[in-house]
Design a protein around this nucleic acid. Structure first.
Lengths: 196, 196
DNA sequence: AGGATCTGACAACAGTTGTAGTCAACCGAG
DNA sequence: CTCGGTTGACTACAACTGTTGTCAGATCCT
């Protein structure tokens, strides 16, 4: 019972479409204007929809922000998984992963800002503890060869912090360096964190 | 011409005292409730003063936030300078510096949160580019022995990011580890960033 | 005691926020 | 053609924001 069709599309189709527009608008605003500029009204204006449709897809502002963050996070996770698969040596794995991530955030700095900055700046995300960095850190930690449980965890947390900071500096232009050199340095960080 | 004395204190004295109360209240709110909870009204409520006295000492909300941040930043800077002075070897310098910083933010996590998180989360600080981490990073960079200009800069940025992330994880309890071990690990990070 | 000065509570302004509701217009299936 | 689901513009609400202004009363010097 998807309801009767309308202009060739079912109601659910259009609803999903509108949801997509809202998420896209949220991604745009959160990635450029930042958290403060991402209000329900601003998102609706940006998506050229009215508030009514906002609450059709999201219970409140928080849900939208979470959806945007998870959307970007999933994209990044997928990119990393794809990059690491079929890479035989640890060195090539690190290189591929770093390169994939750099490509993602250079192609679209909004996503980098959302991934790295938003969880620190938006109450809706900090309140939920919605923080993918720990998740990535855990993944990294599993790859490490040396040390006991907490040792690996500390190393992973530090490594993720180092990478984040370097990326952020690169993103906002305060670290002027070629992309190749950025990648090379990050690879060195990743490798250095493990085997030393 | 300090004006006539009042209840034993001059006007300027009381004005400075009120300013102190406001900064203290701002520190408390910014370090616990975060940026969103640090409104002019909330600060005044917290300091048990009325808005009138707020604008007696600060032109606007931004000035208060900046004052709080600079207050905490100066405290940290002083603690680091004191810790490093009279430490002969690079190793003892690193150890003392890390220990001093940990003491500062363990004694009072509000200060850690302000120092590490606030510049990322509060528009009043990001807008001013008021970010002490780059300053610290620059200081660290000068201490490094190897590499050319940009190389040192990248290393310093990464190191500061690693330390920040470890501290933040420690602060919010997601990194459960003894203080001694935290210090030891951070020292290792600092030393490892340079001589490898 | 008189009078300048300082204090604190409070109101007012215009703005934005999240969230909910109303209502006329539209559209396509029967 | 008509009727009901769908749309979008709009208003309403209460809560908050930064900021400025008012005004009665307390305080202390002369």
């Amino acid at each position: 019972m998807p309801g009767r069709t309308w202009a060739g599309t079912t109601l659910d189709d259009r609803k999903a479409l509108r949801r997509g527009q809202l998420v896209a608008a949220g991604l745009d605003l959160l990635g450029t204007e930042g958290s403060a500029g991402t209000s329900v009204r601003a998102v609706c204006r940006h998506a050229k929809l009215t508030e009514r449709y906002f609450y059709e897809s999201f219970a409140d502002r928080e849900e939208l922000v979470a959806a945007v963050y998870e959307h970007v996070g999933e994209e990044a996770r997928q990119a990393l998984v794809d990059a690491v698969r079929d890479a035989p040596t640890p060195v090539s794995r690190a290189e591929n992963a770093v390169r994939a991530f750099v490509e993602l955030i250079v192609d679209d700095p909004r996503k980098g800002r959302i991934l790295l900055l938003a969880p620190l700046t938006d109450p809706a995300l900090t309140r939920r503890g919605l923080h993918l960095l720990p998740v990535f850190a855990a993944l990294v930690g599993e790859q490490l060869s040396r040390g006991d449980e907490t040792e690996r965890r500390m190393v992973a947390v530090g490594l993720v912090g180092a990478l984040s900071n370097v990326f952020i500096a690169y993103l906002d232009g305060s670290l002027k360096v070629s992309r190749e050199r950025l990648v090379a340095h990050c690879v060195k960080l990743v490798l250095g964190a493990d085997g030393h």
